[in-house]
């Protein structure tokens, strides 16, 4: 465990909890893509099936349980508890256009053709693109609440920190996983445009709004 990996995990945790708190405190999930959140729940579910088969460390197990619990709680808030505030009209990205190709790719390009390994690969590929419905929604409405942008920044930062962690591990441990690295690069690249807007607008005290 190096510092980039740890800060990456913490950034991920901050993002997830920030979103959950925002929805809970405002009693509203306006501006949040339910489709992205369902896909994140699917990502955690398919990746952490080894929670029952492969014990790594208390840290590892606890974090997995927190990520899973929070992501299911978020989905519950959007589609059940605060359903009335869900902006379904603007959440129009076709999720099947991501899930089906990603599923096909996980079958074709994986380390080992076993159910757990294919599901792990699927989760890595799906995570890399799962934020697209959320980014699409912001493009469509032309704006995002500041707290939502903090969430997105922490979520994007997490994978960027993992990329540095992978460079570190390659040099110091001779460890690398090409599937995770390529997907992690794709995932981070998708956030670049948002990072630019976040730094130039939100950090200067302005609301994130796109030109009409």
């Amino acid at each position: 465990m190096n510092v980039f990996r740890l800060t990456g995990d913490l950034s991920h945790l901050v993002a997830i909890i920030l979103l959950l708190l925002k929805i809970w405190k405002t009693r509203s999930c306006a501006g949040i893509s339910g489709k992205s959140q369902v896909m994140f729940a699917l990502v955690f579910t398919t990746r952490y099936l080894d929670l029952f088969t492969n014990f790594i460390s208390p840290y590892n197990s606890v974090m997995k349980v927190i990520y899973l619990g929070c992501s299911y709680a978020t989905v519950y808030m959007i589609y059940m508890k605060f359903k009335a505030s869900y902006d379904g009209n603007h959440d129009t990205f076709r999720a099947e256009f991501l899930i089906i190709p990603v599923g096909g790719l996980a079958f074709l390009v994986n380390h080992e053709f076993t159910p757990l390994e294919i599901l792990w690969t699927f989760s890595i590929y799906l995570e890399s693109v799962a934020i697209l419905p959320q980014l699409f929604m912001i493009t469509k409405t032309g704006e995002a609440e500041t707290i939502t942008t903090h969430y997105l920044f922490a979520l994007g930062l997490y994978r960027a920190l993992y990329l540095i962690n992978w460079i570190w591990r390659y040099y110091f441990e001779g460890f690398f996983d090409l599937i995770a690295i390529v997907a992690g690069c794709v995932q981070t690249i998708l956030y670049c445009d948002f990072f630019y807007l976040y730094i130039t607008k939100v950090l200067h005290g302005k609301k994130l709004s796109l030109p009409a």
Binding site: D9, H12, I56, S57, K64, F176, D177, L178, I179, A180
Partner: peptide, 10 residues
Amino acid sequence: CATKQKKDEL
């Protein structure tokens, strides 16, 4: 082939 990942990452 990539090193088989010991899945200690989250």
